[in-house]
């Protein structure tokens, strides 16, 4: 079966995000004062083949842990969708 995995990567809460801070300041400078915090993350879309959802999840986690994210500074969540 073919699955689509979407992976959302964010900087850990304990890590300062200079990019997010700059975006927040830009929003404020534009008069858009509603946001009180901005964190900039990363997004991956993967297509993969697996026997079932459990196996697909195992593959995605392995890919994230070994390459897609750096566990020192990043956290991630993922969703699977059967295609």
């Amino acid at each position: 079966m073919t699955y689509k995995a979407t992976v959302n990567v964010t900087l850990k809460k304990s890590v300062l995000d200079p990019q997010g801070k700059t975006v927040l300041h830009a929003l404020e400078a534009m008069g858009l004062n509603q946001a009180t915090d901005v964190r900039v993350g990363k997004y991956f879309e993967l297509k993969l083949d697996a026997a079932g959802e459990k196996e697909a999840g195992d593959h995605v986690r392995t890919m994230c842990d070994r390459l897609l994210i750096n566990p020192v500074i990043e956290d991630y969540t993922y969703k699977l969708e059967k295609l």
């Binding site: 900087l11 890590v15 300062l16 200079p18 990019q19 700059t22 750096n70 020192v72 500074i73």
Partner: peptide, 17 residues
């Protein structure tokens, strides 16, 4: 070396971007 785990820690974007 950081990514390879031969040294601890990680690099972030410069504070000034």
């Amino acid at each position: 070396l950081l990514e390879a785990g031969l040294l601890p820690g990680a690099m972030l974007r410069n504070r000034s971007l």
